[in-house]
Amino acid sequence: MLDGDALLDLYQRGRAGDALDRAALLGRAAAGAGAETLPLGELDRRIWALRARLVAETGGPAGDEAVCTCPACGARLEFALPADFAPPPAVAQTVVVDWQGETHVLRLPRLADFGPQGLRLQALGAAPWHDPGFAALAAEALQAADPALGLTLAMDCPECGAALAEGFDPAAWLWAEIEDKARRLLSEVVRLARAFGWSERDILAMPPARRALYLAEVAP
């Protein structure tokens, strides 16, 4: 279980990095030390399963609602995921791409394949990645092998009617919820510390229900 101290520790470490660092951090929390070598789709499934466990244990950091911006008109859109939503399973771990008389065997991308310039395509297999035609065909094949790669959520803008597809990133989604929960917890710690002079350790050691009783007696 991600208790108060562990939550704040995770939040502290995640704030110091970028999106890739946070994905690795959540991946290790969900899948252990070998997270970076798991296929990205599998890592996403495990991160989303971690979120499901946190929801069951704590009632959820912030629910299944999210917002995005319509690229056509700039309207702010709110949307929700179904309660049973989960990234789809993989179909295969490798793909075979035939291109200009040659056969190329590629594996699914991993978090460890990313560097400062993005995904190192050659890590997926020796192939003519410089050829836009091959790169597009390979991307389609990898997406078919694991539909969780590049998963998008389709919706229509209620303001202008434009159809749009919002990219789904389980790590970013979970991180936003962890960030929200951590900030609320920090606010509680500050309020109780100011009111009673208690240490952070003592406050976080309290069961949430007991902490709520004291918070109810403290002026906002």
Rank of each mutant, 00 (worst) to 15 (best):
A62K: 05
A33R: 03
R194M: 04
D64S: 00
L137Q: 11
A135I: 03
Y214S: 06
D5N: 04
D3F: 12
R51S: 04
I47S: 10
D21Y: 15
E166D: 02
L81W: 09
A195Y: 12
P170F: 11
L186E: 00
W198S: 05
E140S: 07
R13H: 14
D113T: 09
C73F: 00
D156N: 13
E140P: 04
E78Y: 01
A83C: 12
P158G: 15
A127N: 02
C70W: 06
E36H: 11
R22H: 07
E159N: 14
A172W: 04
G32N: 04
A24H: 14
R13V: 07
L7Q: 05
A80Y: 02
T69V: 11
L54I: 08
C157T: 01
P207R: 08
W198T: 11
P71R: 07
A138G: 06
G115K: 13
L26A: 00
P207W: 12
P132C: 09
L153R: 14
V97S: 08
C160G: 04
T37G: 15
P158Q: 14
H104P: 09
D113M: 12
E200F: 05
D18N: 10
A193L: 02
L186Q: 04
L81D: 01
L153D: 02
L124C: 00
G59S: 00
A6E: 02
A138F: 04
L26K: 00
C73M: 04
D113R: 10
A182G: 01
A16F: 02
L54T: 03
A126P: 01
A80G: 04
T37W: 13
T94Y: 07
L38Q: 10
Q122S: 09
L50D: 02
E200V: 15
P116N: 06
R45I: 00
R53A: 14
Q100S: 14
L25E: 10
R53I: 05
F114M: 01
D202F: 09
A163P: 09
A123L: 15
R201H: 01
P82M: 12
H104R: 12
A112M: 14
A171N: 11
R211N: 02
F85E: 01
I178S: 05
A205P: 06
V97N: 03
L149N: 03
E159P: 12
P87V: 00
L204Y: 13
A126N: 13
R201T: 09
C160H: 14
R51T: 02
A182I: 01
G133F: 07
D84V: 03
A163T: 08
D202S: 07
A127P: 05
C68K: 11
D64Y: 06
G197T: 12
E42S: 11
V190W: 09
A216T: 02
A35F: 05
G63F: 00
V67D: 13
E217T: 06
M1S: 11
P170S: 12
R194Q: 13
E217Y: 01
T94F: 08
A163W: 02
R210Y: 01
W48Q: 00
M206G: 03
A154C: 08
L204E: 05
H130L: 11
L77N: 11
A80W: 10
G197H: 13
D18A: 12
P71W: 13
